[in-house]
Write a protein that binds this DNA or RNA. Structure first.
Lengths: 110, 110
DNA sequence: TCGTTTGATTGCAATATTACGATTAACGAT
DNA sequence: ATCGTTAATCGTAATATTGCAATCAAACGA
């Protein structure tokens, strides 16, 4: 079918999956790592950093933006993209909690 | 094309993307949240917890396993699945570092 | 105004994912 | 051996994603 049954899962589960899915592509990982590295938020020369054509990069940026991982602001003729701290707070907390939960239950199996 | 150009990215970026992509689906988020919640590692009744058919769940479990997020061990006629701590350590560290990097650079844009 | 630059959008082909019915494989019990 | 249970696999249909050439739109400078 190819159609994810989102209606059967909780709002939170769908939201979490959306964030993670948006980051689940090497090009998009490369984009956020680049945005983390540079001081100023480099705007559109992300394209020249990546081994992909401009429309492809634009599409990846759109997905990251619609997932709430990056923000973009227009600056004259170019666009400034930078990371949205809230998304990283949320993901950091999610995995941090998961890890401590996991460590606290010292399961004997597997 | 539908063909991800993994050869142009670093090993680490590809690996990170693989982990995140594996978690980028509400059913798989639900699976790991269930495995986090239960004390014993519940084995195969994950199927009855999810609103999906058995082959579908089996396929999701396979993806989680091949990404290194869960481990499975056969117990007679049933299979015991549980979370792989290493994956969560890695992801927790990844986002924790990203967040502190992000907070330390107090960018003024966006 | 006109050209240039920047970045989004469109349209399309190739491939991947999602979901499930049907089947199969492996095991334990009778 | 046969049966029931559990879970993987096969096959297939529907849909989504990836990537890019071509094009478009907006903003700037000459």
């Amino acid at each position: 079918m190819g159609l994810t049954k989102t209606e059967f899962f909780t709002e939170r589960q769908n939201k979490t999956a959306m964030l993670l899915k948006a980051l689940g592509h090497p090009a998009r990982v490369a984009i956020i790592e680049h945005l983390l590295k540079v001081k100023s938020c480099v705007c559109g020369d992300i394209v020249s950093e990546l081994p992909l054509a401009q429309p492809t990069v634009s599409q990846h940026l759109k997905e990251l933006k619609s997932a709430g991982i990056i923000k973009g602001s227009v600056e004259g003729t170019s666009v400034c993209y930078c990371l949205d701290e809230k998304a990283f707070e949320s993901l950091s907390a999610y995995f941090s909690h998961a890890l401590t939960d996991l460590q606290n239950k010292n399961s004997t199996c597997c």
